[in-house]
Measured scan of single mutants.
Amino acid sequence: TLEEDLKKLQLSEFFDIFEKEKVDKEALALCTDRDLQEIGIPLGPRKKILNYFSTRKNS
């Protein structure tokens, strides 16, 4: 689940933002850096999230 993935990244504090915006794993895989910025995710966590999901998509 998205919540489990965020826990792996030690970013579970952002789960509420994704839940509020109705972003699940499938939607997050389609998000850009700009999308994450617009919903209030800071730069460092955005980079970690985007890297994590891009490596999952390619495997």
Rank of each mutant, 00 (worst) to 15 (best):
K20T: 09
L2M: 12
P45G: 08
I39Y: 15
L50V: 09
Q37M: 11
L11A: 00
F53R: 05
K22T: 08
F15W: 05
E4Q: 09
A29V: 03
K48I: 13
Q10S: 13
D33K: 02
I41Y: 01
L50S: 02
R34V: 12
N51Q: 13
E13L: 02
N51T: 13
L50Y: 05
Q37R: 05
D24E: 11
A27D: 15
K47W: 04
N58R: 05
D35Y: 14
Q10D: 12
F15A: 11
E21P: 06
K47Q: 15
K47T: 15
E13M: 08
K7Q: 12
K22P: 00
L50N: 03
F53C: 10
N51E: 13
R46T: 06
D16H: 10
R46N: 08
T32S: 10
R46D: 06
K20D: 08
Y52V: 06
E4A: 05
L6E: 01
E26K: 15
C31R: 07
K7D: 09
N51I: 00
F53K: 11
R56C: 10
F14S: 02
D5S: 11
C31S: 13
I39T: 04
F53S: 06
R46E: 07
G44Q: 14
R34W: 10
V23M: 15
E21C: 14
A29E: 11
S59M: 10
L11M: 08
N58S: 12
L11C: 03
L36M: 08
L50E: 06
L28P: 02
R46A: 15
D16S: 10
K47D: 11
D5E: 13
K20E: 07
D33I: 01
D5R: 02
K22Q: 06
L50M: 07
N58W: 04
L30C: 15
L11Y: 00
R34D: 13
C31Y: 15
S12L: 09
K57A: 09
E21W: 14
L28H: 06
E19R: 11
K20H: 07
K57Y: 06
R34G: 14
T32I: 00
E26R: 13
G44R: 10
L2C: 01
L30M: 15
S12M: 08
R56L: 09
L28N: 03
S59K: 02
C31V: 11
S12E: 11
F15D: 03
N58G: 09
Y52F: 13
S59A: 06
I39G: 06
L6F: 13
E3V: 03
Q10L: 02
E4W: 01
L43Y: 15
F15H: 09
Q37D: 13
R56E: 13
S54Q: 12
R46I: 08
E19W: 03
N51S: 13
T55I: 13
E26W: 09
E21G: 12
E38H: 05
K47L: 09
K47M: 15
T32G: 04
S12D: 12
D16T: 11
T1P: 00
T55H: 08
F14W: 07
P45E: 14
K20V: 03
D33Q: 03
G44Y: 08
F14Q: 07
K7V: 03
E26A: 10
D24Y: 01
E4S: 05
R56Q: 13
A29F: 10
E38Q: 08
E13F: 00
F15Y: 08
N58L: 08
Q10T: 06
R34P: 06
E19A: 06
L28F: 05
S12P: 05
P45Y: 03
P45F: 08
F18T: 01
G44N: 12
L36Q: 03
E13C: 11
F15L: 11
E21S: 15
S54V: 03
S12W: 08
L30Y: 13
T55A: 12
T55Q: 11
L30S: 15
K7F: 10
F14R: 01
E13D: 06
K57D: 12
S54L: 05
A27Q: 15
K25A: 10
E19Q: 12
F18W: 02
D5F: 11
D33T: 06
N58E: 12
L36W: 04
F15P: 02
D5M: 07
I39S: 04
N51L: 07
E21F: 15
L2P: 01
P45A: 15
P42A: 02
S54T: 09
L50G: 05
L28G: 04
L11K: 00
E21N: 14
D24W: 00
L6W: 03
F14G: 01
G40V: 01
Q10F: 03
I49V: 07
R34C: 11
R46V: 02
A29W: 04
L43K: 14
E19T: 11
C31N: 05
G44K: 13
F18Y: 05
I49F: 01
D35M: 14
L36K: 10
G44P: 09
I49D: 08
P45C: 07
D35P: 00
R34E: 15
Q10C: 09
V23A: 04
T1C: 07
E26L: 04
D24P: 02
D16W: 10
F53V: 04
N51Y: 03
L6K: 05
G44A: 14
N51V: 01
S12I: 11
R34N: 14
D24S: 15
G40H: 02
I49Q: 05
K47C: 13
I49L: 09
F15V: 09
F15S: 12
S12R: 06
S54Y: 03
T55M: 13
D16C: 09
I49P: 04
I41R: 05
E38N: 05
A29S: 13
Q10M: 09
F15N: 12
G40W: 00
S59C: 10
I41M: 13
E3M: 11
A29Q: 04
S59N: 02
K48P: 02
L43H: 15
K47A: 14
L30F: 10
L28R: 02
L30E: 15
I39R: 11
F15C: 10
L6H: 01
K57R: 07
L2R: 01
L6S: 01
A29M: 08
D35F: 05
K48A: 13
K22E: 13
E13A: 10
R56P: 12
Y52R: 06
Q10R: 06
C31Q: 08
V23W: 15
T32P: 02
E3G: 02
E21A: 15
I39K: 14
E21M: 15
D16M: 06
I41V: 11
I41E: 08
Q37E: 14
K25E: 14
K7R: 13
F14N: 07
S12N: 08
K7W: 02
K48V: 14
N51R: 12
G44V: 14
F18C: 04
K20G: 06
L11H: 01
E26Y: 04
L6I: 00
N58F: 03
C31D: 08
E19S: 10
N51F: 00
K47Y: 02
K20C: 02
D5C: 10
K47P: 01
S59Y: 09
D33R: 02
P45M: 11
E21I: 14
K25Q: 06
L6N: 05
K20L: 04
Y52G: 04
R34Q: 12
L43E: 15
E21V: 11
E13N: 00
A27W: 15
N51G: 12
K7L: 07
G40T: 01
L2K: 03
K48F: 03
G40D: 02
F53W: 04
S59V: 08
D33M: 13
E19M: 11
K22V: 03
D16A: 11
T55D: 10
N51A: 13
R56W: 09
P42L: 00
A29P: 11
P42V: 00
P42G: 02
T32R: 06
K57N: 05
N51K: 12
K20W: 02
E26S: 13
V23C: 03
L50H: 09
E3L: 08
K25C: 05
L2E: 07
K57W: 02
E38D: 12
F15T: 13
L6M: 07
E21D: 06
R34F: 13
L30A: 15
L11S: 00
C31T: 13
L28C: 05
